[in-house]
Simulated scan of single mutants.
Amino acid sequence: MIARELMTTDVIKIDATATIGEAVELLREHTISGLPVVDKEGHLIGVITGGDVLRAIQQRAQKIYHSLFGPTQVVIDETVWHEDSHRLLVLPVEKMMSKGAVTVQLNTPVGEIADLMLRQNVRRVFVLHDDKLTGIITRNDIVRWLVRHVAN
């Protein structure tokens, strides 16, 4: 089995100029944890995840208190959280995306894909053809394939 045979071709993606708020809405609407970010020509340029958004909002809302006698304490300031979250949600996706999306080619064997996911600690890999996004394979896709493969 190779990537072409396992990938989902109807990829939910977002343009780099879309807002973080639009990305969050797509993540929520489709119950997914990450989106590929593409340029106008369909080239993969990054990935945005719910974790990226949460980290950015949380980092701005944290007040950190250092103590000479104990561990650092982090307190979330709800006012800052509310105000900054609105400011962050209107930023373009390209400001918050990770640029190191993990990719494979159409003919990459499933075993290599699974190994890559484990080594890179990622939940999804993007399938490219002629440097354009053509599909996605998630951990769940690999697990479902393994269960079917072992059952037969």
Rank of each mutant, 00 (worst) to 15 (best):
D39Q: 10
S33I: 04
S85K: 15
G51C: 08
V127H: 13
Q73H: 08
V24L: 15
V125W: 04
T103A: 06
V37T: 09
I48P: 04
I136D: 00
V37R: 06
V122K: 05
H43S: 11
D52G: 05
A16C: 09
R28T: 09
R60P: 02
D84L: 09
R148T: 14
I113K: 01
V147Q: 07
L133C: 02
G70F: 12
A61E: 03
A101D: 03
I48N: 05
H129N: 11
G21H: 10
I64K: 11
D115L: 12
R144D: 14
N152M: 13
M117C: 11
E5Y: 09
M1R: 07
V47E: 07
Q120Y: 02
T72R: 10
V53Y: 03
I48Q: 09
E25S: 14
T72P: 02
A23V: 09
D39G: 07
D141E: 08
V75Y: 10
R124S: 06
R4P: 00
V110I: 15
H82K: 14
D52I: 02
H86N: 08
L116K: 08
V38D: 05
Y65N: 11
R123M: 03
T103V: 14
K63S: 08
V80P: 00
S98V: 05
D130P: 11
K40R: 15
G42V: 13
V93S: 07
T31Y: 13
L35T: 03
D15G: 13
V110F: 02
L146Y: 08
R123S: 14
K40E: 14
A151T: 10
T9A: 10
R139I: 07
I137R: 01
E5G: 11
V104Q: 03
L146K: 04
T72F: 04
L88S: 04
I32W: 06
L27R: 10
A101S: 13
K132Q: 12
G46F: 09
W81E: 07
V37Y: 06
N107Y: 09
N152T: 15
I32D: 10
T17D: 12
T49E: 12
D130H: 15
V80G: 01
V53W: 00
I57P: 02
N107L: 12
V90S: 05
N140K: 08
E25L: 14
G34F: 06
A23W: 03
E25W: 08
D52T: 06
N140W: 05
A23S: 13
R144T: 13
T31F: 12
V24Q: 13
R4N: 08
T138Y: 04
K95F: 02
S67Y: 15
R124L: 03
A61T: 01
T103S: 04
V38Y: 02
H129G: 01
P36C: 09
G21W: 09
R123P: 00
L106I: 04
A16L: 12
V38G: 06
M7V: 05
E5C: 01
V125A: 02
I113V: 12
I142T: 03
Q59C: 05
K40D: 15
T79D: 13
V53L: 07
